[in-house]
Each structure stands twice: as C-alpha cells, then as structure tokens.
C-alpha cells in the first residue's frame, strides 16, 4: 500500500504541493489553464503553519480509516487490492461526516460542489504530483508500508 509522508523539518511552506495537486485534479492538467481559465479544484493536501515550522498534511490512507467508517453514503471506501482510501464523488452527499472523523484533517471540502475531495495518490501517474513537484523533497512517496 502506497502513501505520502511529509518531512516538516525540510518543508519550506511554499505551498507548491497544493498548487500542483490542484493542477493534477483540474480539467486541463495545465498550471496556467487551470489557474487562469478554469476554476482550479481545491487542493487535497493541507499545509499548516506553526512557525517557524510548516508542514503538509497528506492523507495517510489508514489501515483502519475512520473516514470510511463514518461515511454515510458509500462514497468512501478502502480499495481491497491497493489499500488506497478512495472517494467516489458521484455518491457523496456532502454530509461532511468524514471531515469531522479524519484525525489528520486530510479531507477537504469542495465548497463549489458541496462535496468532499481527498487524496487519490494521483492514480495513473508514476508519482503523486505533490511529491514530484516538491522542490525540497519534503514529501516522499512510500510504495509499500515501511519501505
């Protein structure tokens, strides 16, 4: 099971992970088009400041995901093969139970669509976009547990 890990000691709080996350989930997947011509979707990764530290909060894709247990509509599920915690937006009713349940604050409200969005590890790409674009290697992708 893959997941993204954050290293706050080298995070410089540049928020590029958020920008590229939005691009990765935009229609065009192009940074200029996404931000100039489309309404970029909300980034699915959160950056918090506790200055001088800043740190990114990606989804942990938990083994026992509280968000999945709290989901009242069947939109959130843990893929039995990959172990990824995935969200089917077509089933989301926007009750935000998962937002309250996640201990990491990793589920984001898409206020435009009144649903939630969450990290899908950029399935289909070699590396999650936030990891690939982090300029200081403050985000890393672990392909397997503990790897």
């Amino acid at each position: 099971m893959g997941k993204i890990v954050a290293k706050p000691e080298v995070c410089i709080g540049c928020h590029l992970c958020q920008i590229w996350c939005a691009v990765a989930h935009s229609r065009s997947r192009d940074v200029l088009k996404a931000f100039f011509y489309e309404d970029p979707p909300p980034p699915r990764i959160v950056v918090e400041e506790r200055l001088p530290l800043t740190f990114a909060f990606p989804c942990r894709h938990c083994a026992e995901p509280d968000c999945v247990f709290a989901c009242i509509s069947g939109a959130l599920h843990k893929d039995p093969q990959s172990g990824h915690v995935l969200h089917d937006e077509s089933r989301c009713v926007g009750c935000y139970s998962c937002v309250m349940a996640c201990p990491y604050g990793a589920i984001v409200i898409d206020s435009e669509n009144r649903k939630v969005v969450k990290c899908d590890l950029c399935e289909g790409l070699d590396l999650p976009m936030c990891v690939a674009r982090c300029p200081n290697q403050a985000l890393a992708y672990l392909a397997e547990d503990g790897a």
Binding site: A70, G94, Y96, S97, M100, I109, S111, R114
Partner: peptide, 14 residues
C-alpha cells in the same frame, strides 16, 4: 466513544 460529528449540510449550506 467517537466524538459525534457536529456538522451537517442542509439547504446546500454547511
């Protein structure tokens, strides 16, 4: 006891 969720969406409003 999971602290019960205190968020709802009604009338398209969180």
């Amino acid at each position: 006891p999971v602290a019960p969720s205190s968020v709802v969406q009604v009338l398209e409003t969180g």
